[in-house]
Amino acid sequence: MLGEHFSTTYQCNYTLIKIGENILQKPIVPLSINNFLDVHDGGDTNIYYIKLFFTNPIFVGIETPYGDKYCTKRNILMSLFLLLGSIFLVPFLGFGLLFLPSAFSSLAIDCAAAELRGKGFQPIK
């Protein structure tokens, strides 16, 4: 079951998604993967997501009932630039501390997507 949602430029924020007996509150789904969320498909859809202690569940991959495997494609250089930039800005009135959580979540998404690509998932942007 898919709850209410609103879309931004890069992602779709749902109020909830129910998968079997599990309920994910406020998951974040990249638009590239959101296209493959279809509750009317016959069979099971496997969803791969990460949940960090300071974020909502973030979807990184999906396996459709037909066996198609897709994962997010992100630029790891941008994630590293964000991390290094936020570390550089910490001495300047602590501005870097504002960006560190998003830098760590971006790196976690990149690492999870790289792991899925190693398992045969097709990266989509």
Rank of each mutant, 00 (worst) to 15 (best):
I19M: 09
C71N: 03
I124P: 06
H5C: 09
N13K: 12
E4H: 10
L77F: 15
C12I: 14
I58W: 07
L84Y: 10
A114P: 05
L107T: 06
F121I: 00
F81N: 12
F92M: 09
L80Q: 09
G94L: 13
N56H: 09
T15I: 11
I124Y: 14
Y70W: 11
I19V: 12
L31H: 09
F36L: 12
F54M: 10
C71H: 02
A113S: 15
L24G: 04
D38I: 01
N46S: 10
L89C: 08
L80G: 06
S7T: 05
Q25S: 13
L24R: 04
K125H: 14
L16I: 05
P101R: 11
P91M: 13
G67K: 05
K69C: 07
L107W: 05
G43C: 03
S86F: 09
T15R: 08
N22P: 00
T45N: 01
I109S: 02
L98A: 12
L16E: 14
M78L: 13
E21Q: 12
A113V: 01
F104M: 07
L16Y: 12
E63Q: 11
L116K: 07
F99D: 11
G20T: 08
P91G: 06
L82E: 08
S102L: 10
L97G: 02
S106C: 08
P30M: 03
I76E: 13
N46R: 08
L97K: 07
T45G: 00
G67A: 07
G120W: 10
Q25P: 00
L24V: 03
L77R: 15
S106T: 09
K26D: 09
T9P: 00
H5F: 15
F6N: 04
A112I: 06
D44E: 12
L97V: 04
F36T: 04
Y66H: 15
